[in-house]
Each structure stands twice: as structure tokens, then as C-alpha cells.
Computed example of a mutant assay.
Amino acid sequence: MAKYKMILDLDTGIDDALAIAYALAAPECDLIGIVCSYGNLLVDGAVQNSLNLLEMLGHPEVPVFRGLSHSSTTDSFSVMPVSQLIHGKNGIGEVELKQADRQVESMSGVDFFIEAAHKYQGQLLIVPTGPLTNLAAAIKKDPEIVDLIGHVTLMGGALTVPGNVTAVTEANINQDPEAADEVFRSKLPLTMIGLDVTTRTLLTKQDTKKWRDLNTLSGQKYADLTDYYIDAYKVTSPHLGGCALHDPLAVACAVDPSLVQTIYLNMKVDTEGAFRGRTIGDETRINDEARQTQAAVNVDVDRFVSTFMRYLTDLFAKH
């Protein structure tokens, strides 16, 4: 099986932790690195969570890079209270993990994106599941990578459903609408995995019990952090009846695009006014052929959730 070279760009909260596990478990993935961002917590917390999770899951060889610590238009970043409610103050549901032996890499996350794009070109898949600040900065520093990267599959945005921060804005895009707009308007081959599809892919405590029953360290820790997430959803989104698998769905769709139905659309992100952060079709390119940017509008829920459970349960059984 041909393996894709994958970089995750994470603000390592709970669903990001599930995304790491999926990328490690999926046979078609070669996870070559994690770039960290701010969002669910501060960037240094995301770095440490990523290192700790990789070591617990038996993959300390995967390097972790520090991305930018705040949006492209601000000088600092503070975690939103709703993010702490959903992910806990430490980003992973207050679950304590052993501190990893490995340290963060000295190269910046932005430079790692550029280096990997030149090295792997069409083989490279980038999966951002936080703000798009790091990717936008990499494009600005080396515009050539837009023509090199194989595909970007991002978790963010909302096209056909309301946002989860404002009526029109999803959290990751909301962190840095300007960076997101640059990425969406670039010529990158891109698929948006937004709230349109991620809120249909749900996990319950019946699922996490299967991990707990493995009696392994990772099974227990992942059950604990995901149960925290499920409980948070009872407060924020009681109508769903479980927690949404936002970030792991983006990883799954990166290697198996057939999991979702998409529409091609030339997109933009509003950066001003009441609709700041909205992901929508660009009216100035409405008559241009749309060939680069797709938005997912439907998902094969049963196939994704069953694959997710199989991959993660097998991984947790070993560690």
C-alpha cells in the first residue's frame, strides 16, 4: 500500500488527541510530524500534549514542531472559556500523562511545512485541525509550496449549518479569519471538513467503554479524556447525544476522500463586520471554474465511525 506523508497541525485538545491516534493507526498514513498551534490551549501546552500522547502510543519517533503562538493580526492569545469547558484547562480533559522524554524540535513549524513540501511534494498531505495561522505563514514565506503540496484537508468552517462560536463562525476559523481567508483564496488543493459533516460523527460512552475494557494505559487514558469531552457536549450541544469526532474525521478524509460527498466552490472567509469568520462562496469568483477548493456536505457516518473504532481499539490494545 502506498503511504501518504502526513503532517498534522494541531491545537492539541481532545479531538486533536483522537486525530493523532487515528493518524498513527491508519495503515495508509505515514505521520512525519506534528506542528502545534494555539486554540484549545496555548501553543506550548499543545506541544507538550502532542509529545506525551505520541510517547504513550508507542511512537516517540514522530517529531513535534512549535508553530505560531497567536493569530496573524494579534500580538497575544488567551484561551476562550468555552474551550476550557470543552477540553479542560490542560487541553486533554484534566487527564494526567507521563511527561515525554523527547523535546520539541528546534526548527519552527512554519519551516517544517516548507521543507516537507519541497521534499515530498505531491505525496504530502497536510491536515490542519486548529487555526490556519501556521499554513498561511508558510505560504507567505515560500509561495512556491502552494504548487507542491499534494492536498490540504482541514477541520474548520461551516457552510450549510450554523457556526459554533457565532451564528456563522466555527472555532478554528474564528481564531484567525485573515489567515483562513489567505489559505482558502490560495491555489492549494483543499478540502474543508466543516461542522456540516463533523457533527454527524458521534461517539458515546458505550464506545469509550470498549477502550477502558482493554485494560491498557492508552485505552484507559483515552477513555478518560473522551468521557470528559462527551460530558462537555451534554452542556454545549445536548441535542447531539454524543461528542463530535471533528479532527479525526479530517484525518480519515485526507487518506480516504470517499468518506465524504463534497461540492467544488471558490471560497473565501469574511474578515470584517458581523459575519467575520464566515466560510462561504466568493461572489467575485462565482463565474470562475471551481477546481481547487471543496467543501464536504455529507459523510458516510457508519463507515467512518466503525473504521475509527477499529483503528483506535487496535492501537490502544498494544499500548
Rank of each mutant, 00 (worst) to 15 (best):
P189E: 14
A171Y: 14
I193S: 05
R200L: 14
D196F: 04
A180V: 04
N172W: 05
A180T: 07
P177W: 03
I173G: 01
L190G: 00
R185Q: 14
V197W: 08
E182K: 09
R185H: 14
L190I: 09
L195R: 13
E182D: 11
G194N: 09
D196L: 01
I193E: 01
R185C: 08
I173Y: 02
T191L: 11
L188M: 08
M192Y: 03
P189H: 15
S186H: 05
I193T: 06
R200T: 09
A179Y: 00
L190P: 01
R200K: 15
V183C: 04
R185D: 10
P177I: 03
I193Y: 02
M192N: 11
I173C: 04
T198W: 10
V183T: 02
N174T: 07
N174K: 06
T198R: 12
D196K: 01
V183P: 06
T199R: 15
V183M: 00
A179W: 01
I193N: 02
D196Y: 06
A179I: 03
D176C: 05
L195C: 10
N172S: 15
N174L: 07
S186Q: 05
R185P: 04
S186R: 02
R185A: 14
L190N: 06
P177L: 03
L195P: 07
R185M: 11
K187E: 15
V183Q: 00
P189G: 13
S186L: 01
G194R: 08
S186K: 02
Q175E: 14
G194Q: 09
D176F: 01
R185L: 12
R185N: 12
A180W: 00
M192Q: 09
D181K: 10
F184G: 01
K187C: 10
I173P: 00
D196E: 08
D176R: 03
D181I: 05
F184E: 04
L190M: 03
P177E: 05
S186G: 00
A179G: 07
M192D: 10
L195Y: 12
D196Q: 04
A179K: 00
D181V: 07
D196T: 06
P177V: 06
D176S: 06
D176P: 06
K187V: 10
V197M: 11
I173L: 09
P189K: 15
T198Q: 13
D181Q: 10
P189Q: 15
P189W: 12
R200G: 06
A171I: 13
F184R: 04
S186P: 00
A171F: 15
I173Q: 00
I193Q: 07
L188E: 08
M192F: 08
Q175G: 11
S186C: 01
E178N: 09
A179T: 06
K187G: 15
V197S: 10
N172G: 12
Q175F: 14
T199C: 11
P177F: 02
M192R: 07
N172Q: 14
T191M: 11
E182R: 10
T198E: 12
Q175T: 13
A180E: 02
F184Q: 05
T191G: 05
K187A: 13
E182I: 08
E182W: 02
L190A: 00
L195Q: 13
K187N: 15
L190C: 03
R185Y: 10
L188I: 07
L195F: 10
P177T: 04
V183I: 03
N174I: 04
F184P: 00
A179L: 04
